[in-house]
């Protein structure tokens, strides 16, 4: 009963809000170019289905490629940091500098350098820059959080640095990495959208471009449809990464234990 309520209540709230929205907009006769009713948005969605799906696919591609690159790059650099204090001390300040500089401010530069004829590459690069840092910093912290007594025990048994890394440090960092991936997945989507807004026109074909396009034409219902798709995409990424986290951690990690209790 409690479990059913957990899913039923948010769903019921959503339905109630949509119903109230629909009734209010119709009752007050709000023009569709200001606030479209949910039914208008659904119609806009159906009418533009092929082009919206193509845009969703474009945005999804940029987001996923950037996310995978950020995860691989972040983990790779964190592993290098864990092996060499000197490399970490040398590079970390620049990673921080890159992180704290607002990506919107760097985006035009990247677009110019990479070129509008290779817009997809530029979008991926920008989304990568936004999502890279949480992976790097959390994995670096996770690799350092391995139990020091266990490291001593590994050394006592003659373990190589490789064995300590693979059998001890990487598993210790896994909960940190998975937490960072949930953040980075959302950031990659934000990066992909922001990059397209900055690009503004040209060959970009993602959902962000559809929003600009629809806004210019005052197709507000279509803008809402794009927004709903972006939200759904963000939720899907988060849900997929949460499922991955559960699959990898639920047998042993404390965070999963509390949910069971």
């Amino acid at each position: 009963m409690k479990a059913a309520l957990k899913y039923l209540l948010p769903f019921a709230l959503g339905v109630a809000v949509l119903a109230a929205w629909q009734i209010t907009v119709r009752a007050l006769d709000v023009p569709v170019y200001l606030v479209p009713a949910p039914s208008d948005i659904a119609r806009a969605f159906a009418d533009n289905f092929p082009s919206l799906m193509a845009s969703l696919w474009a945005t999804l591609q940029v987001t996923l490629i950037a996310f995978v690159l950020a995860t691989a790059g972040g983990v790779g650099l964190a592993v290098i940091f864990s092996q060499s204090r000197m490399v970490e001390n040398t590079l970390y300040p620049y990673a921080v500098a890159l992180q704290v500089t607002p990506v919107v401010a760097i985006a035009p530069l990247i677009l110019i350098w990479v070129g509008y004829d290779r817009i997809e590459l530029a979008l991926i690069l920008i989304a990568f820059l936004v999502s890279f840092f949480p992976i790097l910093s959390n994995t670096t912290l996770g690799l350092k959080s391995a139990d020091h007594n266990l490291i001593d025990l590994f050394k006592l048994y003659g373990a190589s640095r490789w064995q300590i890394l693979v059998r001890l440090q990487l598993p210790s960092a896994l909960p940190y990495l998975l937490g960072a991936m949930k953040i980075a997945g959302g950031l990659a989507l934000i990066g992909a959208v922001v990059a397209e807004f900055v690009a503004g026109s040209g060959t970009a074909t993602g959902l962000a471009w559809r929003i600009i396009e629809a806004g210019n034409r005052l197709e507000i219902a279509k803008m809402f449809a794009c927004l709903a798709l972006l939200a759904a995409l963000g939720i899907a990424i988060f849900a997929a990464l949460s499922a991955l986290e559960y699959a990898l951690l639920h047998k042993w990690h404390e965070s999963a234990l509390k949910k069971q209790g």
Partner: peptide
């Protein structure tokens, strides 16, 4: 060790 110091995974 004083703690069990096991690999939790």
């Amino acid at each position: 060790f004083q703690e069990p110091t096991l690999m939790p995974w």
